[in-house]
Nucleic acid binder design. Sequence first.
DNA 1: AATCAGACTGACCGACCGGTCAGTGAATTG
DNA 2: CAATTCACTGACCGGTCGGTCAGTCTGATT
Lengths: 219, 219
Amino acid sequence: MAQASQKSTPVHTLSEGALAILGVAKQLFADKGFDAVSMNEIARQARVSKANVFHHFGSKEALYLAVLKAACEETVGSLADTQAGDPSAAVDNLWNFFASHLAAMLKSPDSVRLILREIAESEESREQALASQVFADYFTRLVSMVSDGQAQGLLRAEFDPALLAFLMLGANVFFFENRSVTAHLAEGGFARTPARYSSDVFDLLLRGALSDVKGRKNQ
Amino acid sequence: MAQASQKSTPVHTLSEGALAILGVAKQLFADKGFDAVSMNEIARQARVSKANVFHHFGSKEALYLAVLKAACEETVGSLADTQAGDPSAAVDNLWNFFASHLAAMLKSPDSVRLILREIAESEESREQALASQVFADYFTRLVSMVSDGQAQGLLRAEFDPALLAFLMLGANVFFFENRSVTAHLAEGGFARTPARYSSDVFDLLLRGALSDVKGRKNQ
DNA sequence: AATCAGACTGACCGACCGGTCAGTGAATTG
DNA sequence: CAATTCACTGACCGGTCGGTCAGTCTGATT
């Protein structure tokens, strides 16, 4: 075991074969989940021997962890440049973040599916904590933007900012997870393109569903 | 193979052992997914021999299908009694459906996780179609309620009714899937109890996040 | 008493699993 | 040139996988 299972080697120092393994493993794990993928299959698709996979990553668990870690870094990385913005334009910032978040998810779907899969897992493992951290990162950013909007008087202050943030995150994730289902749906026109979905959802969240007559009867 | 793999035996005609197997399999499949569960494990927990599991269900696939089918029926069944309601009270109907939907999910989490797992799968199998149908059932109901609300002038008519339905469904599913994550979150107060979450989300969706000043600047 | 159906079991099967290991061959280094 | 390093491999291991089968036991039918 030459350099197996060393912690978090920067990606660009890996050998060609190791990168191929990482790429194949990412796609397979995202597609079918940890248990449905065998090391044999990964090796075959990466065109290396199975022993070579173990040489580079030590164990199946370690390989999975490496894949997940890369996916998390890629995901939070794509978010890093979509930041800043002054509080007085909180609603615009919110919109930018919301739309680019969905776009980023769709641009690297394997990473996202990997992370969502991990979060859905019930056991509280090291891997789950990693994936949850990505979730928390997005969430915290959204919450602070919403808070800004409330502080500036642009948004109503009566609701919990975390609630809107959660709703926005959920709207994107739910869209992402159900793309294939909504595509076959008769009423699925709203989800035909991500851009349209984003702007329509954002508009609905901001303005609300209620008509402007005084009928405020909820609960 | 005595009565294995017959299609959709009504549950109450199954033997005691078969029911035990079904129950154990449901919990295990929901917890860990198809590939992470072995027939040995199911047999052990159900206190029967592995051969007996095959006697009753023929194959692992068939057992999984039986479990999934039962879960789908249970889920749409819990929805069946929450129906009707005249169109003029569309908003109230919407609220009732929304709140009881979340409550129903939390009452039979194994079934829900089974279905969500199946929907998340990429391959378009027979099982996926089954699970998607449950999704479609809920969705269609919601859409028609929203349409009613729009026809009655209670809700704004400018947005796609399917969009609000989708958002509501997503809000509940997202809450369900991320219960364990939000519980550890500092800003997770909004998700402390399902009842509070339901009513707060519903209120926010109806009234919108924007404050009432004329600042309508979105896009 | 004889027959039959069906729930149930232990022993077994070939295939495949994750993982190991001794070794090969091509660069790098002294 | 010798020594070292390291990506890489084929052969192999014990164990578990989904699945089969011959047969046992029990209770109802005739």
